[in-house]
Design a protein around this nucleic acid. Structure first.
Lengths: 150, 150
DNA sequence: ACTTGACCTAAAGTTAGGTTTAGGCTCTAT
DNA sequence: ATAGAGCCTAAACCTAACTTTAGGTCAAGT
């Protein structure tokens, strides 16, 4: 069992945020000892899940919904599973985007390194349609994959 | 050269958002023909960069700063390169988090599949400290990697 | 006795990133 | 010539997710 202050340090979250989460119904079963919140394993687990679901952009109210399902017992197993499967797809898409953006950033790092070496962008821009070093070209192409291709 | 409507479709961004970006100074050199914005290659490239930088959580005002550096010419090459290098680190961290969260989601998918099969969570919870199937244990462990280990 | 630290609430305030509204201009096709 | 499409601005509005404020309880140490 932990106090709000301990949990705050554990998860690097302000106390005010934990209270806000509680108020929003994210710890539907939290116990209290004369008014003071007692964070048990259930709430710690909830916070891991919150971290995970928030990272894929899920809103507080939908996370709350999940927490409510957890209260309702076995009848909601399927809903809960489906929800994680949906989130899996969201994360997969996010991962793809992230890789695209990483390629662009690597390209840009190379680009500015060259520009610094050359003192200008003229040389690079001449190469730009197709005459980039193979590896760099690959980064560039990856960084624009599918903008109209969906 | 494209109109705002064409660009809106190209990037799947509302027209209002493009105008907002312009107002915030993200297209510092955009040309106009009798009041109407003309999006050239420079602005299209800017939008690719905006997409990329926004995805790592960079704020509009910092993206604006970058666009201003682009206006200032060769004297800012180093700043621009350093900025992309910082963002690279941000994305790398994001990638790590994403993988952690993916592991948790996969674990949860397995968990609820089991729960549905068993009709309850009792069996799983008994296994929970250490007796999970090896592959599942690996997911679980990855999903909690480094919460106090920093 | 009193100060300090850690907890509590309700309610107001903040911020970023848009979106909507209201009004107006200018082509083009009917 | 008039209706519709697509462009424009300024300014008001919106929302989620917090954060801050103001005021209060309670236990431990000095």
């Amino acid at each position: 069992m932990f106090t709000i202050g301990q949990v705050s340090k554990m998860f690097h979250l302000p106390i005010s945020t934990l209270r806000y989460y509680d108020k929003e119904g994210l710890f539907p079963n939290i116990q209290r000892a004369s008014g003071i919140r007692k964070f048990s394993d259930a709430e710690i687990e909830a916070l891991h899940v919150i971290d995970c679901l928030k990272s894929s952009g899920m809103e507080i109210k939908d996370i709350k919904q999940f927490m409510e399902w957890c209260q309702e017992g076995p009848s909601t197993y399927l809903k809960r599973k489906e929800m994680f499967e949906r989130q899996k797809k969201v994360l997969e898409k996010e991962l793809q985007e992230l890789e695209k953006h990483m390629a662009m950033i690597q390209f840009k790092c190379w680009y500015y390194e060259q520009a610094i070496t050359d003192g200008n962008e003229d040389h690079i821009k001449e190469m730009m349609p197709e005459d980039l070093p193979e590896e760099i070209q690959a980064l560039y192409d990856r960084s624009r994959g599918s903008h109209e291709a969906d």
